[in-house]
Amino acid sequence: MKRRKFIAALGAAAAWPLAANGQTPARLVHVVLLSPVEPSLVSLRKNLQDLGYVEGRNIRLDVRSAGGQIDRLPGLAEAVVREGGIDAILAQSFPAAIAACTATQTIPIVATVGIDPVASGLADSLAHPGHNVTGIAIFAEEMDTKLVELLREIAPRAVRLAAVAAITGGGNLSLGAIQEAGRKLDFDVEIIKIADPADLATALSPEVLTRFDAFMFPPDVVLSSYKAEVLKLIGLSNKPAVFPSSDWAESGGLLSFGPDLAEVGRHSIFQLDRVLKGEKPGDLPFERPTKFTLIINLHTARAMGIELPPTLLVRAEKVID
C-alpha cells in the first residue's frame, strides 16, 4: 500500500468507532469564576477532574478577579455576560453572587456565600432558590456567634472586642450578630472596617490595636487573601484573636472555627456538574456545610503566654503543638 493511501486508511479507521456509534466529540463547556480576589485554583481543578472535567478537553475555565476591589465586581460580571457563550458562573462570595445575578437572569450561577441567601434577597427559599442561582450558604451569622463564645472562653476578663472585616458591599450582614452576641457576653464591641486592603497597616496599627482586649474575624474572602499580613499585624498586639477557617490557625492564628472548606469546595462543584448537565439552578436547593472544625494553635498560645482551658482543648478536632 502506498504511503498516502495508508495514512488515509488510518484516519478512516480512527474515525469509524465514533461514526458507527453516532457519537461526537464532547463539547467544551465554558465556566467563569467571578471572585473579589485572585483565587487559588488547585482544589477547584482537582474537584473538577474528579468529576471528569479536564481543562482544554471538555471544559474551559476562566477567572475574573476584582483584585480585592469589591466595587469592580458589577463591571466584571457585565463584561462576562457581554462576552457570551458562558455555560455557568461560579460566584465566590455574596458580592460576586449579587453582581452576577444583577448582570444576568439567564446564565446559571453557582454561588458560595457567607450569609443567609434568603434574608439577603439572593434566593426565594433555600429549598427552591428560584431564578438562576443556587450554591452553598455558610450562614456566617451562626458561626460568628460561636466565635464570640469561644473568645469569651479564651479571654474571660476581656472587655473591648474588635471585629475586623473588609467592606464588601453588603457581604457583612452578620456583623449585627457579632454585636448582639458580644453584648450578651459582656463585650463592648467595635467594628473595624477595612475599606482598602492596601490600608491594612493603618487600620490595624499598634495605636488602633492597643484600644482592644481581643479580636475576632468573621468570614471574609478579601481579608483571607491577605492572611499573612493580617496575622503579622495582629500578632504584634500579643492579644487573643479568633478566625473563621482552619487555614488561619494552620498559618499561625490562635484559634479557628468554621466549615470544612474542602467539603464546601467539593459540594460547590457537585452543584456545578448538575447545572452543566441540564438541571435548573433555581430548582437545586442551597446546601449548608455539615462539618465544622475547631483548631487550636497551642504553639501560638504559648508564645503569647495564654493558658487555654483544658475543656476547650479536648473539644478541638486538631491541636497544633
Results as ranks from 00 to 15, higher is better:
4 R>L: 14
5 K>R: 12
6 F>Q: 02
7 I>L: 14
12 A>L: 15
17 P>E: 06
22 G>N: 00
25 P>V: 03
28 L>D: 00
29 V>F: 01
38 E>Q: 14
39 P>C: 09
42 V>Y: 03
43 S>Q: 15
46 K>C: 06
47 N>I: 14
50 D>V: 08
51 L>F: 05
59 I>T: 12
60 R>I: 14
69 Q>E: 08
77 A>S: 01
77 A>I: 01
78 E>K: 04
80 V>E: 11
81 V>Y: 04
81 V>H: 01
84 G>M: 03
87 D>C: 08
91 A>K: 07
94 F>H: 01
104 T>S: 11
106 T>N: 06
108 P>T: 15
109 I>W: 05
114 G>Q: 08
122 L>Y: 06
122 L>Q: 04
125 S>C: 12
128 H>K: 10
128 H>D: 13
129 P>Q: 13
132 N>S: 03
133 V>M: 01
133 V>R: 02
136 I>V: 11
139 F>P: 00
142 E>L: 14
143 M>E: 06
146 K>T: 12
146 K>P: 08
148 V>G: 10
152 R>I: 02
154 I>R: 15
156 P>C: 02
157 R>V: 14
159 V>S: 13
161 L>Y: 10
161 L>T: 04
161 L>R: 10
161 L>P: 04
162 A>N: 12
163 A>W: 06
163 A>V: 15
165 A>G: 11
167 I>Y: 01
167 I>D: 04
168 T>Y: 00
173 L>P: 01
173 L>E: 05
175 L>P: 03
176 G>Q: 05
176 G>T: 07
179 Q>A: 08
180 E>H: 15
181 A>I: 09
183 R>N: 02
186 D>N: 15
187 F>P: 13
192 I>A: 03
192 I>S: 03
192 I>L: 10
195 A>F: 06
196 D>K: 01
197 P>T: 01
202 T>S: 01
203 A>L: 07
206 P>T: 03
209 L>M: 14
209 L>R: 13
210 T>D: 15
215 F>D: 04
216 M>I: 09
217 F>C: 09
220 D>V: 14
224 S>C: 02
225 S>Y: 03
226 Y>N: 13
227 K>M: 00
227 K>Q: 00
227 K>P: 09
228 A>I: 10
231 L>I: 13
233 L>M: 05
246 S>T: 08
248 W>C: 05
250 E>C: 03
251 S>R: 07
252 G>H: 13
258 G>M: 04
259 P>M: 04
262 A>N: 09
265 G>R: 15
266 R>L: 10
268 S>C: 08
268 S>R: 14
269 I>S: 00
270 F>A: 06
270 F>M: 11
271 Q>I: 11
271 Q>E: 02
277 K>T: 15
282 G>I: 02
285 P>E: 03
288 R>F: 04
289 P>V: 07
292 F>N: 01
295 I>T: 09
298 L>D: 08
300 T>K: 15
304 M>G: 12
308 L>H: 13
313 L>G: 12
318 K>N: 02
